[in-house]
Amino acid sequence: MIELKGIHKEFVNDEVVTKVLHGVDLKIEKGESIAIMGPSGSGKSTLMHILGFLDTLSKGTYHFDNKDVSSLDDDTLAQYRNKKVGFVFQSFNLLPKTSVWDNVRLPLLYSNQKVDPKVIDEAIKSVGLEHRKEHLSNQLSGGEKQRVAIARALVNKPDIIFADEPTGNLDSKSGIQIMEILQKLSNMGKTVILVTHETATAKYAKRIVKVKDGRIVSDEINKVITDGRTLNGNLK
C-alpha cells in the first residue's frame, strides 16, 4: 500500500540547511502493524509526517495505493489527511472545553459529505467512552483524552492510523489500555503505524523499523509480540 523510494528531507531555516532523512526506502502492506523506533532527532517523526501527508518530501518518490503522491498541492494533501489517515498525537490535541462528541466529529466537518451521527457514536463506542460522550474535554483523564483522540482518528474510517508516541504523556496503566486499543484495531485489519522511542511500546507491533540519523538501520519481524495475554502474565 505504501512504497517509499530514496526519500530525502531537508529543512531550510534562515539559510541553514538541516538534512533529516538521507534516502529512506520502505514498503508497508495493508493491515500491517509497524513500530518506527529511534532516538529523538533520528528522523522518525519526519518520516511519519511524510507518510501521513503532513509534510512534503525533498527528494525521492512516495506511492500510496499505487499512486504517486510525491508532490501534491496543499489542498490535495488536506484531502488525503482527511480521507486516508488518522492521527493520534502524544499531547492528545483535543479542542478545549468541547464535548467528546464534538471532538470526535471534527474530521467530518472537513469531509464535504453528509454525515450520519451514528458514525460518531460508533467511533466513541469502539474506544469504550459512550458513557462520556457529552463530557467536555477538560473533564477527562489523560487516558480518556487519548481514547477520544483514537476515536477521532477512526471516525473517517481511514486506511492507516498513525500514533506518534501515544503513551508518552500517560501513566503506564493508561498507556497499556491505549496500546491494547491500537492492537485491537490492527487485529481488525487497520494498518497501524506507531512512532516511539520506547521499546516496551514498540513490542506491541508485529514489525519494528529502527531509524537512526535519517536512515533505516534495521527492519525486522517482532518475535515477542506483547498482547493482552503476555501482559496479564507479566502483571501477575
Binding site: 489542498d75 488536506a78 484531502q79 489527511r81 498525537f89 490535541n93 471534527l106 474530521p107 472537513y110 473517517n156
Partner: peptide
C-alpha cells in the same frame, strides 16, 4: 495548535 490539529484532520487553508 488547534489550527494545526484541524489541518491534520483534513482542514484546507481556505477552511
Amino acid at each position: 495548535r488547534e489550527i494545526g490539529l484541524r489541518k491534520a484532520v483534513g482542514a484546507t487553508s481556505s477552511n
